[in-house]
Simulated assay, not measured.
Amino acid sequence: MTAGRLGRLRAVIVDAVLLGMAAIEAFEAIGFSRSHLLAEVMAVVALCALPFRRRAPYLVFVATVPMLSLTMASIASLVALYTVAERRPARIPLATCTLMVFLDSARSLWGEGYPLSGSLLDLVYAVLFAGAPVLMGLLMRARTELAVQLAEVRDMRGSRQELLLEKELARARTDLAREMHDVVSHQVSLIAVQAGALQVTARDDAVVEIARTIRTLSARTLDELRQMVGVLRASGSRSPDLSPQPGIDDIPALVAASGIDTTVNTTCTTDDEVSAAVQRAVYRTVQEGLTNIHRHAPGAQAWLELQIDESAVHLSLINSSPRRSPDPLPSDQYGLRGLRERAELLGGSIATRQIASGGYELALQLPLRC
């Protein structure tokens, strides 16, 4: 059973017990009343109103006062006064309700020939009858407010711990990114050095061209790794000097450096400017597509078509079937997954499909502005 259902069940049980006690006291006290019929009517009204004391505390209290005056049955009025103090602790209305209970409980003080000792005792009883429900109601209200404040403090403490944990995780990810940069940059630097040596010593022009391409790509990879590590630095450290991010205008240079026989067709029918985030996404998509062609379709031709109109940017990169078997390089599919997540964040979409000629198509569609 949940906490909410348990609380409602507890409230129903308490109301049933209080209503039963008030009914027993009321109908026992009716016999001492001068007007039995009027007392019975007021008792029924008070008992019928008592279950609604949480919704309308003042009205329920007013409904119980006539029964208290006619029969001196006090349980219903005391319960109603307690509810007023717990739910509606405004000073003037609460003081008025308390005074009404006090005056009804101390009626004997105005009787003639009543001894002084009895009057003092009745005065103490009247104060206790009127004051105890009020003090208990205010105490329960303070307890409820304190419980709410403690829950808020626990929530704030939990939120603070989550923030600290996220900060530590971000710092750990930054350290991990730096470690990855050191490892990858070392390996890529060795590749660049070996490609440079091959470029100098090779006699075949084709081998020299391939070595030059490998060295250029290695240098570009190192530069991009350094930029990524600069962006991932923890807050509070010295701000990195970032180079301009690549965009659509850099795609021809990217295609030329890839070494893939690619036909590029660019069409622009709008004067609206494409946002920087969309340009980076287009560039990264072309970069990942060319990398996948190198990896999975060596020797294939490619056709790159880029269309920019008033509504969106459309990119299509198609490659033919490979001319030779691809090398067994590791692939984790993180590249396409990252491109798809980037496109969705920018409000676009990306799709891939196998074409009938044995080639592959990578299609991207993004809005001009994100």
Score class of each variant (00 low, 15 high):
residue 330 P to Q: 00
residue 262 T to Q: 05
residue 346 L to D: 06
residue 184 V to S: 07
residue 339 L to E: 06
residue 207 V to E: 11
residue 31 G to W: 01
residue 278 V to G: 11
residue 42 M to Q: 07
residue 84 V to H: 00
residue 367 P to E: 02
residue 319 N to A: 01
residue 221 T to P: 09
residue 253 A to E: 14
residue 195 A to T: 01
residue 7 G to L: 10
residue 138 L to N: 05
residue 159 S to F: 10
residue 287 Q to V: 09
residue 316 S to C: 06
residue 12 V to Q: 14
residue 307 Q to V: 07
residue 274 V to F: 03
residue 326 P to M: 04
residue 333 Q to W: 10
residue 50 L to P: 05
residue 259 G to M: 04
residue 38 L to E: 12
residue 190 L to F: 13
residue 45 V to C: 04
residue 106 A to L: 06
residue 226 R to V: 07
residue 57 P to Q: 01
residue 82 Y to A: 03
residue 99 L to R: 02
residue 137 G to N: 02
residue 219 A to C: 15
residue 203 R to D: 15
residue 340 R to M: 09
residue 361 E to R: 12
residue 356 A to R: 07
residue 116 L to D: 09
residue 169 L to I: 13
residue 63 A to V: 05
residue 116 L to P: 06
residue 195 A to W: 01
residue 12 V to Y: 11
residue 263 T to D: 08
residue 251 I to F: 00
residue 360 Y to M: 07
residue 90 A to K: 10
residue 241 D to V: 14
residue 97 C to I: 06
residue 88 R to K: 05
residue 175 D to T: 08
residue 302 A to N: 04
residue 90 A to C: 09
residue 15 D to V: 05
residue 32 F to R: 12
residue 104 D to A: 14
residue 49 A to S: 04
residue 7 G to K: 08
residue 270 T to R: 02
residue 260 I to R: 04
residue 255 V to H: 02
residue 142 A to P: 07
residue 217 L to A: 14
residue 44 V to T: 05
residue 233 R to W: 07
residue 208 V to W: 15
residue 251 I to D: 00
residue 109 L to F: 00
residue 218 S to W: 01
residue 162 E to V: 09
residue 133 P to V: 01
residue 327 D to R: 04
residue 208 V to E: 15
residue 27 F to N: 00
residue 110 W to S: 14
residue 329 L to I: 08
residue 265 N to F: 08
residue 296 H to F: 12
residue 24 I to L: 15
residue 133 P to T: 01
residue 61 F to C: 04
